[in-house]
Simulated scan of single mutants.
Amino acid sequence: MVSFSSLLTNLNHGSAPFISTFLLIHLTAPALANVGGSEMASQVMILGREYYQTSFGEKYLLLGPIIVHSLSGITRRLLAPGKPISLVHLAAYPLLLLAPIHFLTHRAIPALPSEPISSLSPSELDYQFVVHHLHKYPVVSWTLYGALILTTIVHAVEGAVVVWNTWTPKMRVNQQGKTRSVRLAAALMAFGGPVLSGVYVLSRELPFLLKGMAERFDAVLRSVPIYRLE
Rank of each mutant, 00 (worst) to 15 (best):
G36K: 07
Y93M: 10
L210V: 13
K59W: 06
H69Q: 10
E215F: 03
E230M: 07
P225G: 10
L95A: 02
R228G: 15
L79F: 04
R180F: 05
V173R: 12
R107F: 11
I101R: 00
P100L: 07
I85G: 00
H69P: 04
A160M: 11
A111T: 03
Y145I: 15
I66E: 02
G198P: 13
R76D: 04
L221I: 11
P194N: 13
R222Y: 14
Q128F: 02
S123K: 11
H106W: 10
S123I: 10
S6E: 14
I149M: 11
L7T: 12
A31Y: 09
S114Q: 14
L11E: 06
G36C: 09
E39W: 01
N12K: 08
N174R: 13
Q43N: 09
E115N: 09
Q175V: 14
Y93R: 01
T152H: 09
M189T: 14
T75K: 00
R49T: 02
E58S: 08
L188Y: 00
R216K: 12
F4W: 13
S55R: 10
R49S: 06
V140T: 15
M171Y: 15
N12H: 15
P94A: 06
H89I: 03
L206R: 15
L120C: 05
S5K: 12
N165G: 09
A92K: 00
G37H: 04
R222M: 15
V199E: 02
T168P: 00
L97S: 05
P84A: 05
W164E: 07
M171P: 00
A214D: 06
A91W: 01
L125E: 06
V224M: 11
S42D: 03
T28S: 15
Q176D: 12
V173H: 06
L206K: 15
L47A: 15
S38C: 06
E158H: 03
V44P: 06
P100H: 07
I66P: 03
M45C: 09
A185H: 01
H106G: 15
N34I: 06
V88A: 08
